[in-house]
């Protein structure tokens, strides 16, 4: 069974960068897929990868990460919308590697391939 946890941006907006990363990572470590409304800042994405590496152990093998930003078109409307919405625009998917095998992504679509039924070595 795959569990998806929706995370509205309002739940992380008041947190520090470290707080945001910890919140997302803690959910992923519970073997849940995080669907974050909005996106992290670029530096936070890198810090998320770094924090993930620090947490890797026998049970937790890392994450799969994908960000869709519909405001990336570069047009005037996209620019204004991006300015108004800020980091609330877009969608971020973070799945634990034990559950998510791969995330295929193009700028406007995400395909999530899961590891269902895969037996893990102890």
């Amino acid at each position: 069974m795959v569990t998806i946890q929706l995370l509205p941006y309002s739940e992380i907006s008041s947190l520090s960068s470290i707080g945001r990363i910890r919140k997302i990572l803690n959910i992923a470590k519970q073997n849940k897929i995080v669907l974050l409304q909005g996106r992290l800042q670029k530096e936070e994405e890198t810090e998320l990868i770094k924090a993930t590496m620090e947490e890797i152990n026998k049970e937790f093998r890392g994450i799969e990460l994908a960000v869709i930003n519909p405001m990336q078109g570069g047009g005037l409307f996209d620019g204004v919308a991006s300015f108004v919405l800020g980091n609330r625009a877009g969608l971020t998917v973070v799945g634990p590697a034990s559950v998510v095998k791969k995330i295929k992504k193009d700028p406007h679509k995400i395909e999530l391939l899961t590891n269902e039924g895969k037996k893990r070595r102890k």
């Binding site: 990868i49 093998r61 799969e64």
Partner: peptide, 9 residues
Amino acid sequence: GIATRIDYE
């Protein structure tokens, strides 16, 4: 190489 997952398996 930068990766988001590293699985010894």
